[in-house]
Computed example of a mutant assay.
Amino acid sequence: MKQLLAFSALVVVASCAQTTVTPVAKNQIMISTSAEAACGSSGSAKVASRMAAVETIRRGYERYIIVGAASANNVSVYQTGPTYASTSGSSYSQGNNTYGYATTHFGGQQTIFHGTHDTNLVVVMFNAGDPEFDKAIDAKTQLGPNWQKVAKEGVNACN
C-alpha cells in the first residue's frame, strides 16, 4: 500500500506544471506557470525559471535576464467527514453487576489539496553583441548537459 501511495505521489509530481508563453517584444517574453498544490511555490518558480532558459533557446537566443517576477497561490485544504464507523465492545458480569465498554472508530476521512501555485516571469533574451549580454544567464548552462532534450521537450515537472 505504501508503494502504491508513493507511486501515486510521484505520478502527480512528475507532471505537475503547465506553462504558457506570451511574446511581448522581439526579444521579450512573459512566462506564466501554474503548478499543482503538491509542487509548492518553489516548484512553480523552478519550472518557470527553467522554461525561461528553454524559451530563450527555442527563440534563437543564447542568454536571458529575468526583469520581472510575481507569484500567487490559491491553494486550499479541506478534510472530508467520516465515511464509516465501526463499534466494538465487551462486557463481563461480576455478581449482580455487569461492566463493559464500547469504542467507536470513525474512518474514511480524506485530506484534499486544491488549487495552484502560480509564477509569472518577464524575460529579456540576448545574443552575443547585444547590450547586457555579459550580465545575462547562459540558457544552456542553466539546463545542464542534456539541454537539447530539455529544450525540445520543455519542463512540466517541479521536482
Rank of each mutant, 00 (worst) to 15 (best):
residue 13 V to C: 11
residue 15 S to F: 14
residue 17 A to I: 02
residue 17 A to M: 06
residue 18 Q to F: 06
residue 21 V to E: 03
residue 21 V to L: 03
residue 24 V to S: 13
residue 25 A to W: 06
residue 25 A to P: 07
residue 26 K to S: 15
residue 26 K to Y: 11
residue 27 N to Q: 14
residue 28 Q to Y: 04
residue 28 Q to C: 08
residue 31 I to Q: 00
residue 32 S to N: 15
residue 32 S to Y: 03
residue 32 S to R: 07
residue 33 T to Y: 02
residue 33 T to V: 06
residue 39 C to V: 07
residue 41 S to R: 08
residue 42 S to I: 08
residue 43 G to A: 09
residue 45 A to S: 13
residue 46 K to W: 03
residue 46 K to C: 05
residue 46 K to I: 02
residue 47 V to M: 03
residue 47 V to K: 00
residue 48 A to G: 06
residue 48 A to C: 08
residue 49 S to A: 12
residue 51 M to Q: 10
residue 51 M to W: 02
residue 52 A to L: 06
residue 52 A to D: 04
residue 54 V to G: 00
residue 55 E to N: 13
residue 57 I to K: 01
residue 61 Y to D: 03
residue 62 E to W: 05
residue 65 I to Y: 01
residue 65 I to H: 03
residue 67 V to H: 03
residue 67 V to E: 09
residue 67 V to L: 01
residue 67 V to W: 04
residue 71 S to E: 13
residue 71 S to Y: 09
residue 72 A to R: 14
residue 72 A to E: 15
residue 74 N to F: 10
residue 75 V to T: 13
residue 75 V to E: 10
residue 76 S to P: 00
residue 78 Y to A: 08
residue 81 G to M: 08
residue 81 G to F: 08
residue 82 P to G: 15
residue 87 T to R: 13
residue 90 S to R: 11
residue 92 Y to D: 07
residue 92 Y to C: 07
residue 94 Q to L: 09
residue 95 G to W: 11
residue 95 G to Y: 10
residue 96 N to W: 11
residue 96 N to T: 13
